[in-house]
Nucleic acid binder design. Structure first.
Lengths: 224, 224
DNA sequence: TAGATTGTTAATCGATTAACAATC
DNA sequence: TAGATTGTTAATCGATTAACAATC
């Protein structure tokens, strides 16, 4: 089984399966069928079977996939069964939101330190995580050996932040800014592009609206 | 030209072109070639040409695409040339980050009101935008007629928030929670999946590491 | 002019879906 | 048992890339 050359598209579907399975388990089920999953997630059932098979789990005809085992299999496949420490640079609202993001623990990531250049923030705590001066980055990295660097700075600071993180020996960057980061080929960079997502949304509004006014408020519509 | 049936993949590449062109314009250029763009963005030049052509702009051999015109063309294509008002529900850190997101104005979106159920927040201002009681949602919607609903609540509140927004006549939802939202087929839902992005990142770490330890801090590496 | 760059047609590549035998 | 569901092979579909004539 060629487990290494999968597209990012496949990988990016897996978390949805995972959260579906968490829910299913919470409601007391022990097995889950691709058929049921497909109708909830809006993904073709064959694709779900194929994706799940890729993680190494197998189901039983008529019964479905064992939930516990499948969860474990996906987590292992994504590397979410391991603990990883992360540094986050840019302790603004977005950085704080990520630091307090409860679901992050599902992924094995722990944000151990925040960094900022704002003296008002340095020395404070955000959701229990200390904010350090950005100049202490390399010192802290030597002590804590983080695996992942998260960038939530303003766009203008993103490239230099990336450089600093790489200089500290960090080789995986999670970039929340719109900046296009340059780094050596050995550095893994994953961008969260809010603009791309918004582009898809507004384009759909445009196409769906298609001449006729898109928004038609329903006069006296039932409200909850 | 079939301008309506394009994949989300194509659409999601356009903002990167846009920001590249903003930069190019700032440095005084009037024209931009797909060749140059390709090397910066890491996208095949043929694909860039094709994508740009889809938005309706044409370039000239040897000269490239006219920057101003191309920017306008992409913005128009994405519907970013129009002003759209948005309601945001969930005035936490993520909601605040979005409200203060400077690049949002490039997209034509204005977040006009925030909503929350936390009495501490209700009545306050976040980046100049007022926070209202969530129970006032439908009243406010009748007055302000927002086109887009942004959900930055905790996951548990996402579905009921979505229902409320839809009941107000909002037909486009931008969902930042991991919840899988259900709504009528006429409702446009766009999810920003942080978990998917992280899955891609950690999977790459896993594959690249591949047995040998991934992280190799460079002893005495040059630090900036 | 020469050659860099365009837009487009054809070829390739990869991802998704259909079909179906196997089986719990 | 019967039939729901599995895993997989083959077919389809769509996206990306290669090739190339046109042209500024």
């Amino acid at each position: 089984m060629d487990r290494e050359n999968l597209s990012d598209l496949t990988i990016s579907r897996l978390p949805a399966y995972l959260y579906y399975l968490f829910n299913a388990r919470k409601s007391g089920l022990t097995h889950s069928s691709a058929t049921a999953m497909a109708s909830v997630l809006g993904i073709h059932m064959t694709q779900i079977r194929r994706d799940l098979a890729l993680t190494g789990v197998t189901g039983k005809p008529k019964i479905g996939h064992p939930i516990d085992e499948t969860i474990e299999s996906i987590q292992k496949f994504l590397g979410w069964d391991r603990k990883r420490d992360a540094f986050l640079v840019g302790a603004g609202n977005l950085g704080s939101a990520l630091t307090g993001y409860a679901d992050l623990y599902t992924t094995g990531i722990t944000i151990v330190s925040l960094f900022d250049d704002n003296p008002m923030k340095i020395g404070s705590m955000v959701n229990g995580v200390p904010v350090f001066d950005i100049t202490e980055l390399s010192f802290a990295a030597r002590r804590l050996n983080p695996e992942i660097g998260i960038i939530t700075t303003p766009r203008e600071a993103a490239q230099s932040t990336c450089d600093s993180l790489v200089a500290c020996g960090i080789r995986a960057i999670w970039n929340f800014t719109p900046a296009i980061l340059e780094a050596g080929p050995e550095i893994i960079i994953e961008n969260v592009s809010i603009a791309s997502s918004l582009a898809v949304l507004t384009r759909k509004i445009l196409v769906q609206g298609n001449g006729i006014p898109f928004r038609q408020p329903r006069e006296g519509a039932e409200e909850q």
